[in-house]
């Protein structure tokens, strides 16, 4: 009887605060993976408020699929709890360079 919450089936790592170009890419990924549910992990050092602000138009377009959005500091990037990312969107090259090496190698391998 109890179906419980269906966790999102796709995880996308977003490095940096998304700008318009990144959101465009994210929209493409949404079209592809949205039906599976999306877990978005944004690594940013600009604060939750700014990330939500940048993501607002993207989040508002969604009226169908489950989306979970996590915002983490670069220092906590390895604590996202995700083993494998379905895709990576790099919005901040400098931040990518500054990521812990184990995460960076995962990203580069994508």
């Amino acid at each position: 009887m109890e179906a419980g919450f269906k966790d999102p089936g796709a995880a996308v790592l977003i490095i940096g605060n998304p700008d318009d170009k990144c959101l465009e890419r994210l929209t493409t990924l949404y079209r592809v993976y949205g039906p599976r549910g999306l877990k978005l992990i944004v690594i940013s050092n600009s604060g939750v408020s700014r990330v939500l602000e940048s993501m607002r138009s993207f989040l508002q377009k969604n009226t169908s699929f489950t989306i979970e959005l996590y915002v983490v500091n670069p220092g906590d990037a390895t604590r996202s709890g995700v083993d494998k990312y379905t895709d990576v969107v790099t919005c901040d090259q400098e931040l990518l360079e500054a990521l812990p090496s184990n995460l960076k190698s995962k990203v580069v391998a994508q």
């Binding site: 009887m1 993501m55 969604n62 489950t66 989306i67 996590y70």
Partner: peptide
């Protein structure tokens, strides 16, 4: 004590059934 999502949109696939 696990990290929480900042935002969750509950999609149609997670809408509760009548029994839930």
């Amino acid at each position: 004590g696990e990290p929480l999502p900042r935002y969750v949109y509950v999609g149609v696939d997670n809408a509760p059934g009548v029994n839930e």
